[in-house]
Computed example of a mutant assay.
Amino acid sequence: MGYIHHQALMLQCGSMNTRPSPLPHKAMTELLSPDTLAPQQLDYALTLPARFYTDARMPALDGSAILARSWQLVCHLSQLTGVGDHVVTEIAGLPLLIVRSDASSIRAFHNVCRHRAGPIASCDGQGAKHLRCRYHGWTYGLDGVLRGAPEMGRTPDFNPADIRLPEVRVHLWQGLVFVAIGEAPPFDEFVAGIDARLGLHRALHDYQFHHRASYDVACNWKVYVDNYLEGYHVPQIHPGLNSLLDYRSYITQTAQWYSFQFSPLESADDLYGSGEALYYFLYPNTMLNILPGRLQTNRVLPMGVDRCRVEFDFYYTPADNPEAQARRTKDIAFSDEVQDEDVTICEDVQRGLASGSYEAGRLNPLRENAVHHFHEMVRRAYRDSLI
């Protein structure tokens, strides 16, 4: 993910998806039968039914019931170091612009001009002095207030100071920037206990952004999340990763809004060395993969009922010596190998779910407790959407 230097945001780098509309209540009740939404005990739990991964109505429901009601990771503070630095993203179809508005503030605005809904920015950038819609040139300050509108000076009762970009909540944690576009749990509850588990020696805010790798995967976003949430498949799907981890000591634990997997890690000094592999899942679609000297964040972005995009952002502790650069190169290659293996199995699973052969399967209580935890949160979100 490269930065583009502009004094104003007049960027042209592609289009964004249409925001999914909430399903009519009748359609939702047809899709979500009471038996599939009832809470399940782990020892007897079944997976979510296949239609939750394949029905064309699911993207709209997931957008309104889950993504729009959650905290979403958007970037790392190291990407917003200077005033005017900004990133663009989208949550549940809503385009967003996150910008450092002054030395002490980061704000998140709807990336939709108040004039005719044009895009203000389409790419990340640095050092913007103001925010200019590339459709008609309406220009906003970094505080989101309209500063200029070409040829609108004689328009009756038109006061630019009364017009501002809608703003959403921002929370900074461990150097990571999260936003919420709607109802979301209190952030302290969302990450409760993680700081203590990480400890001072692995404070994530000390890491620096390195690069982004994006994968388009032909599966529903929940298939990818399910796959992430268990180490049950590691011996079968990831022989290279399995050689570094101690599967017998691989443990998965759950909290209110997240789960985490951890295992002793042994690798050569030119990769990670020895220590601990720690994998956090923050509901509903954020992952933090923490290995010695490296943080990797994943965002799983729905792109349709049977498509998702997974954005991998790599962060490393500050070091530019040849040894550190060599370790990074090896880490990136190893990450690509593991991801290619995950993409293949997730796409295979999506085909199985769509085949008509499968409805739901029994979960392994020992190895798939985090999958059950995620499915219970999804069921709860769907139940709440019917109220």
Rank of each mutant, 00 (worst) to 15 (best):
G352F: 05
D269G: 14
H6W: 10
H130D: 11
R197D: 10
I163A: 03
G84W: 00
E276Q: 15
V300F: 08
L295Q: 04
I98P: 00
A184S: 11
Y3I: 04
A121R: 01
T29Q: 11
A68W: 00
Y44S: 15
A117G: 08
S214H: 05
L73E: 01
M152R: 12
I290K: 06
R367N: 09
K330A: 13
Q350S: 08
L146Y: 06
Q79E: 15
V99I: 08
P156D: 10
A203S: 13
E376Q: 13
Q208G: 10
D124R: 15
M152L: 12
E337D: 13
H130Y: 04
I237W: 00
A203W: 01
D340A: 15
L291W: 10
G118W: 05
L241S: 11
A45P: 07
D216S: 12
R69F: 03
V378A: 07
D188N: 14
R197G: 02
V300E: 03
I345N: 00
H211M: 13
P150E: 06
G141S: 03
I120C: 08
H233G: 05
A65F: 01
E266Q: 15
R132F: 00
Q236R: 12
K222C: 03
L165V: 03
A117T: 06
G93H: 07
G275P: 08
Q339I: 14
G144H: 04
F209Y: 15
H373G: 07
E347A: 04
L271A: 09
D270W: 13
N242G: 13
S335K: 12
L9W: 08
D43P: 01
G14T: 07
Y280C: 02
H211L: 15
I332S: 08
S335D: 12
D348I: 14
R309W: 04
F52Y: 14
E230S: 09
V74M: 11
P119F: 12
Y224C: 09
Y135P: 00
Y316F: 11
R383D: 05
R132W: 01
P302N: 10
E167F: 03
N220P: 11
G293H: 05
Y358N: 01
A60N: 09
L363D: 02
K26V: 15
F158V: 07
L67D: 10
R328S: 12
D143F: 02
T36E: 13
H201P: 04
F109H: 01
Q40V: 09
Y382D: 05
A56N: 13
A180N: 02
M377P: 03
R380P: 00
Q296C: 05
G240Q: 14
K26Q: 15
L278R: 15
E359C: 10
P160Q: 05
Y3E: 08
T286W: 01
S122M: 13
Y382Q: 06
V310Y: 06
Q174M: 02
L42I: 08
N364C: 08
S101R: 04
T89M: 04
H211C: 14
